[in-house]
Design a protein around this nucleic acid. Structure first.
Lengths: 236, 236
DNA sequence: TCTGAAGTTGTACGCCGTACAAACCCTGTA
DNA sequence: TACAGGGTTTGTACGGCGTACAACTTCAGA
């Protein structure tokens, strides 16, 4: 029963959209409604088109999720790579913090990074430059590759667990708020059955902080540097 | 207590199922069909019951996923905790390898670990005992807690990326097969644009191996031990 | 024997990804 | 200038999802 509402969007001639517009819409929905909000149907509605029109631009949902991942990886600041005069540890820290900040800005997108192999050009480019950076640090090609993966595991694992800690779908609340939410939840653990957990509750509540992230990254870099490593200088 | 009527799916009087049976069914489906196969409807079908009967045992799907996570955490071997005569590094390694093996046996379940806060009793118990272990290692309470989280991030992040690397839903193929699949995929990366990636292709193909896992864990433990750490002994 | 509570079921709603063919518009060619 | 062909969008449809709701079945205890 359709006399054609004639409102908007007549069938369509030449390509009216782009992958980029769809990724934009997906990111917006991701930010507003969490991971599950980035459905094909909602993305289509967001850009004002029928659901199946999306399949002109992506073969399936997985492909569009890969495009979102690539977009976010493309936003990573490459400054750390070029600044070869800086100590390599600082460069890795700057890179890790930047990646963390970029992904934390879109918590709903974080699970997408665990949804497939991450083989896009931006992923490869980041990996390539990270290998170069670790080569500058004096690691051999093999250790550099292993260390690069270890760093990726740390950054993504850290973020994924941080995001999993949330309940609501919206943007990441302020760090202080997340800490106090965790503190409240932790207060419910019986101190007699888990004494050490209870004693360390403050530290545990801080698992989701930038501080914990930097501490973990520090231990990791200590381990990568090896026993003959330079001391962690503090100057810029 | 109740002699388990082994009821055959007639409407139903007294409780005919248990949470455990449902978790069993979920794990079976997870193993056969991957993460998405563990739907409420399929679990219900597996145990021969209407979909909504599941809601007698779990308030919602998230609760049942939490139960699966708890089940797998409960399977972890606690031997490493009690063996206080062994060097602490060996104990951590044994624990990490056991957890890794338990989760790798159910790859479809791995994403569930990133689906919520992991606050069940088995999770708390493992954390508590890990804190104790790291205390044995000489770390203060705060460093022990931070290190414990770092270890969790590493093990879970590592597994999640390993699982994400797969395409098919079934059980994890043999390590050799996974390496060669990665090698083939890696062979497609243009060596002129990504020379270091191409040069390290063999190492990168091995990202999903137990070897890489142990290497990463080793660097991590090096970093945790601090600069004054004992040398990494090689005997068993 | 009756009653109330607990467990299960049928049905239903609104989502989801996506396959298929019809309708449409533009561009290139005659 | 007319038209044909191809690429794009749309309506419709299918099977699956989580889960709310009320009716039905069965048992435990009075």
């Amino acid at each position: 029963m359709v006399p054609i509402p004639s409102g908007r969007a007549r069938p369509g001639p030449r390509r009216a959209l782009t992958q980029d517009e769809l990724v934009d819409a997906a990111l917006k929905l991701l930010d507003e409604g969490g991971t599950s909000a980035a459905s094909i149907r909602r993305i289509a509605a967001e850009v004002g088109v029928a659901p199946n029109a999306v399949y002109t631009y992506f073969p399936d949902k997985a492909a569009m999720e890969r495009a979102v991942v690539e977009r976010l990886l493309g936003d990573v600041d490459h400054g750390a790579f070029s600044a070869r005069n800086h100590p390599w540890r600082r460069r890795v820290e700057a890179l890790a913090l930047d990646l963390r900040a970029n992904l934390a800005a879109h918590p709903g997108a974080v699970p997408l990074f665990m949804g497939g192999p991450m083989g896009g050009p931006h992923a490869l480019g980041l990996n390539e430059q990270l290998l170069e950076l670790l080569d500058d640090a004096g690691l051999g090609p093999q250790d550099a590759a292993r260390a690069a993966y270890l760093l990726v595991v740390f950054v993504l694992g850290s973020l994924a667990l941080n995001v999993a800690d949330l309940r609501q779908p919206g943007p990441l609340p302020d760090e202080r708020d997340r800490i106090s939410m965790r503190s409240r939840a932790l207060a419910a653990t019986p101190a007699d059955a888990f004494p050490r957990t209870a004693a360390a509750a403050d530290t545990i509540a801080g698992y989701v902080t930038r501080d914990q992230f930097l501490w973990g990254l520090g231990r990791l870099l200590d381990g990568i540097s090896g026993p003959d490593a330079e001391l962690p200088a503090d100057g810029s």
